[in-house]
């Protein structure tokens, strides 16, 4: 066991990678829990593609500059979220249809923009990230986004829960409904941009969605579900980084595949809706 943890003691780049992924785990997984519970998992995936043209414009202007690509990603993500909402309201089309159209346009535009100036290596860096190359500035950004996300969630927790479970009731008792939806979309974009620094635009959504889906198989209440999702994301980050170091695997996919392994285990063994649980007689509730 100590042999597996040795790289984190010996190498600063491994320590940075672990700190970065822990920050993303603490920040992105609660957002992912709400995304899955609102049946918006695929929306998160689409939004992760939607930030690409903004990141690409940042890359065109300043090369692999963290600040420019981050700002570009946030602007592009928010623009697609607002445009999708506006088109849905103006035309009566379903939100998922508008989102699919915008994310496909964004993905193609982003790849085109990066290829105008960069090499295939740059494109791979943006699409799949480089968690082993996180510098001080990137770590600071991840920690700031994690803090901002957790504080914001603490503030909007109750209205956000109510917006998920009974939006009509929330509209009838307060004016939180519109603002809380926008704040939530902002958090999704912010965390996808944070995730892309480490895992790239294509895989950043994995850290958001997969831990939430795993935790759903084990928990009946939201608080424990969020806590477990955080734990799953941290454990998968650790396992993915160790696997990446030991067998020279690309670290982003190794972390995502670790999450995938925990998901498959939960899918089979999870006591709530897991495959085995469906064949086991369950004790009934007592009033």
């Amino acid at each position: 066991m100590s042999h597996l943890l040795q790289p984190f003691l010996d190498y600063v780049f491994m320590q940075r990678a672990l700190l970065g992924t822990v920050a993303i785990a603490l920040s992105a997984t609660p957002v992912g829990c709400f995304l899955t519970l609102r049946r918006m998992s695929l929306m998160g995936d689409a939004m992760s593609h939607a930030i690409l043209p903004g990141v690409a414009v940042g890359f065109l202007v300043s090369g692999l500059s963290l600040g420019a690509m981050t700002v570009g990603g946030i602007v592009a993500g928010l623009a697609v979220a607002v445009l999708t909402g506006a088109v849905t309201r103006a035309t009566g089309q379903r939100e998922d249809a508008s989102l699919a159209a915008f994310y496909l346009i964004s993905l193609a535009l982003g790849v085109l923009l990066v290829s105008l100036r960069g090499s295939n290596v740059d494109l791979m860096h943006i699409l799949f990230g480089s968690v082993l190359a996180l510098n001080d500035a990137a770590l600071r950004l991840l920690c700031v986004i994690a803090t901002l996300t957790l504080v914001t969630l603490a503030v909007v927790w109750r209205p956000l829960v109510l917006e998920c479970v009974d939006p009509t009731f929330l509209r009838s008792v307060s004016r939180w409904s519109g603002p809380v939806h926008l704040i939530f979309l902002g958090l999704v974009v912010l965390n996808l941009v944070a995730g892309f620094q480490a895992l790239g635009t294509l895989l950043s959504v994995g850290m958001m969605i997969l831990p939430a889906l795993c935790a759903r198989f084990w928990c009946r209440n939201l608080g424990p579900m969020v806590a477990l999702a955080m734990g799953v994301a941290i454990a998968a980050s650790l396992a993915g980084l160790v696997a990446s170091y030991e067998w020279s695997l690309p670290s982003g996919p190794a972390i995502t595949l670790s999450l995938g392994a925990i998901y498959l285990f939960s899918l089979i063994c999870g006591p709530k809706d897991g495959i085995l649980a469906r064949f086991r007689p369950r004790p009934h509730f007592h009033s």
Partner: peptide, 10 residues
């Protein structure tokens, strides 16, 4: 029908 009965809340 407006209530999401699958939401994990007691």
């Amino acid at each position: 029908a407006d209530v999401d009965r699958q939401f994990p809340i007691d």
